[in-house]
Design a protein around this nucleic acid. Structure first.
Lengths: 221, 221
DNA sequence: GCCCTTCTCGATACAGCGTATCGACACGAT
DNA sequence: ATCGTGTCGATACGCTGTATCGAGAAGGGC
């Protein structure tokens, strides 16, 4: 009888793609942090099993590379402008993007962004600095300074720490540490400290770097 | 008979201390990388079991904090000098220390160094910059720029990537990417690229940052 | 249609992880 | 000696990444 016969099985498997896998992983990391991204969790979010993902990547490390490159791909090219304006725009947009995916800064501690989007990002940094007409060597140094600053600062901003709007516990910790008298300059800074927003801090620090780059131009000293 | 009687059991447990646990973990990370540091492995290196470590720390995360602070403790205070000299010395010694423990840059992607040694490190940065007599706000920005640059650059240096003396495979990857024509400035840089040692690159980038800080002094423009 | 080959999929397994739990033992106080 | 407390380590649990293998699907040849 018809009612006793199993219905034709639905298409068993879910359509996958590398892009879909990556997006699921990014969504999971955004929702619960990087530690929540396991192959099982990603696969479950896609309605399949973990071993299926191995058709699209070789290892979990590959997945992390893909996730990093996806974030790089969200950072837009800068509007055309002079070298400083372009670098400022890149820096700002990197910050915005990293805030949407704070786990990105953790990935910066384990790998370099050399996927296609990561290379495009580098290209833009180099193109902006190349406007200065510096020799290749100095251009590399300048780009290194900018990108290192951006990455380093975003880690300062996005990782929990005493300087980054800590909860009561961390401030109390800092106050106790400073009360030991072992950190006098830090004590002065904290006493004088007016909460500076990370946007301003980031921009000001960047200006220091850009001023330093400007000083490297022939005839600039 | 004497030969059949068990000998009095030796002292069952091994002496532990937080310092010993940390040192064992650091040694393991140095030898095999951060991923090799499991509580089981650390405990085994100490001749005991993993649960024993919980008498000295609450979690594996605590262990990573301790490891980070231990590395900060290896970075010596700078010899007294002017502000630039002191910052250069701090930067150089940070680089040296990080090279001995390359996993330190990975930890910089997951936590901030606010242990006692980490605070001492901050104190030294602040003390050097404070010689400039800038207001607290500008001092914070300057220190942020320096420390962010140091951390960011060390990640560029110590993590595998196309720019960092790659094996044949990565260079071939870069060459292929550049051959797409999508990264023209990168192509120019690679064509002009003379292998620059990381020491020089680090120092040059740092000078850009220090020049920028110098430019922030009243009357410096 | 049937049979064979190849590919895909997913269940199962394994070794390892961090950490909770609990029984055994040691030690100190009475 | 007995009792209470603390320490230790074995065991267990839920989770991880990934190897493995059997079942089923799909395609091609006859």
């Amino acid at each position: 009888m018809i009612w006793e016969r199993p219905e034709p099985g639905e298409r068993r498997s879910v359509r996958l793609s590398r892009q879909a896998v990556t997006a699921a992983a990014v969504a999971l990391a955004d929702a619960e942090g990087l530690e929540a991204v396991s192959l099982r969790r990603v696969a479950a979010a896609l309605g399949t099993g973990p071993m299926r993902l191995y058709g699209y990547l070789d290892s979990k490390d590959d997945l992390l590379d893909l996730m990093m490159d996806a974030v790089c791909g969200e950072i837009p090219p800068p509007p055309p402008g002079d070298w400083r304006e372009e670098l400022r725009a890149i820096a700002r947009d990197t910050q915005r993007t990293a805030r949407r995916h704070p786990w990105y800064v953790t990935l910066l501690g384990t790998r370099q962004p050399y996927g296609p989007n990561g290379l495009a990002y580098s290209e833009r940094l180099f193109a902006a600095v190349a406007r200065l007409g510096l020799p290749a060597r100095l251009t590399v140094h300048a780009v290194d300074a900018v990108r290192a600053y951006i990455a380093g600062f975003l880690q300062l901003e996005l990782l929990p720490g005493p300087e980054a709007e800590p909860g009561e516990e961390k401030l109390a910790y800092l106050a106790r540490s400073v009360a030991t008298g072992r950190y006098p300059t830090l004590a002065w800074i904290i006493a004088e400290f007016e909460a500076v927003g990370p946007d301003e801090a980031f921009a000001e620090g960047l200006e220091r770097v850009l001023d330093g780059i400007a000083a490297a131009r022939p005839g600039a000293s």
